[in-house]
Nucleic acid binder design. Structure first.
Lengths: 130, 130
DNA sequence: CTATCTAATAGTAATGGTTACTATTATTAT
DNA sequence: ATAATAATAGTAACCATTACTATTAGATAG
């Protein structure tokens, strides 16, 4: 299993660092500025591989296109329904609460929770002012 | 605004009662048994309208097709990754924990949480035996 | 009861995010 | 250098969902 490090993959990784929770298309547009003929398929393939390998996080957001995150530390995402901005949230209090929820769910359903996908939505303070 | 109750809509509602967290296609196939030329578009339209009106729940499940639920009482969904079965979970303990999470998120991000979409995944006890 | 109005439908086309496919390019090991 | 084969570019296909349009069929008024 021979892994090769392509320039494209490095540029995609870099885009993830520069952009804030970008979609695949946003990564594509960003990389295209310095590498005009990168393929959207290449972006998707690499993002998929990285997410699969646990190097990045995939944030499924319902109907809207998935977003990606270089921050693999366990944390929650809060989306502003107005401006679309994504906020991160973390902390031991949150982790405690999530752990308790897992436990309750395991007790009541018998399912061993292995994965959670959650997205919180609301209006950010910025947008509430208008 | 004149609302008309079509036979199709009633059949779709009935399908939701008979089936367990079905997808739009599953509703379609079910209704089609007794009403062969119902249109998939009709199913989607009615499910969308009902969900919008708060009469049913839409469960977005990432890549997989959305599922629908006649149970509009606030509750969580746990999906078995093996057999695909959907388990419901509810209770005041869960509601408490979720409320606390909302509060923490509002404090740290400034976003007024108005909507949560969460899906838990794991392996059910049935499947774990094999 | 009949005509009229228009909500809702059937059938089909279009959309949009994502994945699959294939010939070509380019990186690594020999 | 050369051979072997990842990875890519470009494009086609996929699939859930929505949009469109001519038609059907409940409700309401006369």
């Amino acid at each position: 299993m021979n892994k090769r490090y392509s320039a494209q993959k490095m540029m995609i990784e870099n885009a993830l660092k520069e952009l804030d929770h970008p979609t695949a298309t946003e990564v594509y547009e960003y990389v295209r500025e310095s590498y005009p003929n990168i393929s959207l398929g290449t972006v998707y393939r690499n993002l998929g591989i990285m997410a699969e390998a646990g190097e990045i996080l995939r944030i499924p957001s319902g109907q809207a296109p998935d977003r990606f995150d270089i921050n693999i530390h366990e944390h929650l995402h809060v989306l502003c329904a107005e401006c679309g901005q994504v906020f991160d949230a973390e902390g031991h209090q949150l982790e405690d609460l999530l752990g308790k929820i897992d436990k309750l769910l395991e007790e009541s359903t018998g399912v061993h929770i292995e994965d959670r996908s959650m997205l919180f939505q609301g209006v950010c303070s910025q947008c509430r002012k208008q």
